[in-house]
Design a protein around this nucleic acid. Structure first.
Lengths: 192, 192
DNA sequence: GTCTATACAAAGATAGAC
DNA sequence: GTCTATCTTTGTATAGAC
């Protein structure tokens, strides 16, 4: 467990981004949470807030990609079910005021670089999901479309559940999505 | 066309919320865009920023609900197709830096009231969509789940397309969603 | 109702001692 | 590398003339 000052600042920034967004994230909050001193921020991140935010979003993007890569190579039915099970706890955190740090970076595009960071992260997630499908024999084009749809559902669930303050919208969506994919890809395993 | 000062301020606030979010929306931007004077803001909105933001989000929520209510009462296949066609131009605007003003209000929950405004708007959208389905004979529970799923897809598409700077993620998702719902509800019209 | 001017707080960014 | 202190800008909020 490294836990250098720089690491703690990045983790604190990820947390602040999830809860407050880019404009709402203040250095004061990051410094308090990480225990760092005020001047340390420009020592580790000469680019200031933009650099810290970009670094935090990129790290969070990698963390999520790694978790998605742990999903099994499986047919669409199994993959959708395991994807929904994997992200449910994350969305539950959104219902309690958190959110997706990468999505947060897409707001307030003062710097186009931040948007690029988010686009890169989302692309890596989509590619990772699509690979799990093609590894199981799915058509590449179909796999890409389905992977994008799953990512869309994840991001939308963050928004709806944060608004509702409950996980219920996610559960309703998961029920419908599971039902749809089961009927569409009936050749796959039917149950859990 | 009324166009009172108050109206223009609300419209300017909606625009600022879409692009910058709550924390990123400044009075200066709203006043510049609406042509109002600095003091006017507390004259029309004694509650300050919180009241202006809540009013703007509620108005935008009503505007969207009205557009959703214009959708035909139809079976799931037709409804999904017409829903996607209706929202595509809106998502295209997100790809260019805009976004959903109601979703923006769910970030930075300094005041729980704002979260409630968003939850109320989203509920009204879901109810409106579900009504179009039940009016066409769909099972109420199924209609509610499908309506929530459509709304989830819409919000997710805003996020992905803003990050990508393109409408492409929406089109990929729309293709997959249309395919899924056509196979699931094959009894309905098959499409063009 | 509308405008100008200003008070007050918070944020980002720097300088320089240690 | 780390800390304290401070500058500058921005933003919210208010006061008061017209």
């Amino acid at each position: 467990m490294a836990a250098t000052t720089r690491d703690r600042m990045i983790d604190a920034a990820i947390d602040a981004l999830q809860k407050k967004g880019v404009a709402g994230m203040s250095f004061t909050a990051v410094l308090d949470a990480s225990g760092a001193a005020r001047g340390a921020i420009y020592h580790h991140f000469p680019g200031g807030k933009a650099e810290l935010v970009a670094t935090a979003a990129a790290r969070n993007g990698d963390q999520v990609r790694e978790r998605l890569a742990a999903l099994p190579a499986a047919d669409p039915v199994i993959l959708v079910e395991s994807f929904l099970a994997l992200v449910r706890p994350v969305v539950a955190a959104s219902a309690d005021g958190a959110g997706c740090a990468v999505a947060a970076v897409t707001v307030d595009p003062d710097s186009g670089d931040l948007r690029t960071v988010a686009a890169t992260a989302f692309d890596s997630w989509t590619t990772t999901l699509a690979e799990r499908l093609t590894a199981a024999g799915a058509d590449p084009a179909t796999a890409a479309d389905l992977a994008t749809t799953l990512l869309t559902l994840l991001q939308g669930a963050h928004v709806l559940c944060r608004a509702a303050g409950e996980i219920e919208p996610f559960d309703r969506m998961a029920r419908a999505a599971t039902d749809l994919v089961r009927h569409r890809f009936a050749s796959g395993a039917q149950g859990r």
